[in-house]
Amino acid sequence: MNNRNIWQDYYAKALARPHAPRTAVAARLNHSGILTAIDCGCGTGSDIAYLAELGYQVHGFDINADAVSICRERFAKQQSIQISQASFDEFEYPDCGLLIANASLFFAKPVSFSRLWQSITQSLASGGVFAGDFMGVNDSWAEGYRSPITALTRQQVLALFEHYEVIEMHERDEPGSTLLGRSKHWHTYSVVAIKS
């Protein structure tokens, strides 16, 4: 099965999923006064749909053309939603009160991750919320994956949040499977944090 078919199968399954519970938590914690959200690696748009219902202006982006096509069709009639095809490096981050990066920051280029994180932090208003995942070094994708992966230690993840109040940080380090049912070892850090 080629890479394109894998992503198509993934998105077909992802369309059936509701928004992430962590996205609801993050939206409740946003005290920035800014109802603008960014969904990094938006996939099929489950979090976008939820945030738009809450009254957010949502900017979603994904590098995968299939994901972008699905979202553009799904949200064609909603003026409060903007969908872009872009990488982390290409996207222009607007000022926001909420930034979601569920299972996407793994795929940011390691060589430009520091610059990306600076862009994310600068885009978030004081009192705004980051909610997302980072890949740990024990993950089976951390080395030898088909594209470069940014894998971080616990200390490296915590260092990113020097100017934030970390509300929750959950570490997963266990065998599991992907959405498509393939076995792998997961090592991730899931973080919700409020920018100071």
Rank of each mutant, 00 (worst) to 15 (best):
A67T: 08
S126A: 14
A125V: 08
E92F: 09
I100Y: 07
K77L: 13
E162D: 15
L116H: 00
Q82Y: 01
I100H: 07
D95I: 04
R146A: 07
I83L: 02
F134V: 07
G136P: 12
S84V: 03
D62P: 07
F61P: 11
M135K: 12
W117V: 03
I167R: 00
T121R: 09
D95G: 10
G55C: 01
H59Q: 09
K109G: 13
A76T: 03
S69K: 06
D95P: 06
V129N: 10
S114Q: 15
D133L: 06
R115S: 14
L124T: 05
I63C: 13
S80V: 03
A65T: 15
L160E: 13
R74K: 12
Q85E: 08
L152K: 08
S123A: 08
V111L: 13
A131F: 12
D139K: 03
R146S: 04
M169W: 02
L105H: 04
E73S: 12
Q57F: 09
G97V: 07
S119V: 01
S119I: 01
E90I: 00
V58H: 06
R115N: 11
G97Y: 01
F130D: 03
V111K: 15
S84M: 05
G60S: 11
S119F: 00
G97L: 11
S112R: 05
A131N: 14
P148W: 04
P94I: 00
S80L: 06
D62E: 07
S84D: 15
V68T: 13
T150F: 03
S87G: 11
E92K: 08
A151L: 00
V157C: 09
F91L: 11
D89T: 00
Q118C: 13
R115E: 14
S80A: 14
Q155G: 12
P94Y: 03
V137H: 09
N102G: 10
A108H: 08
D133A: 05
E162K: 07
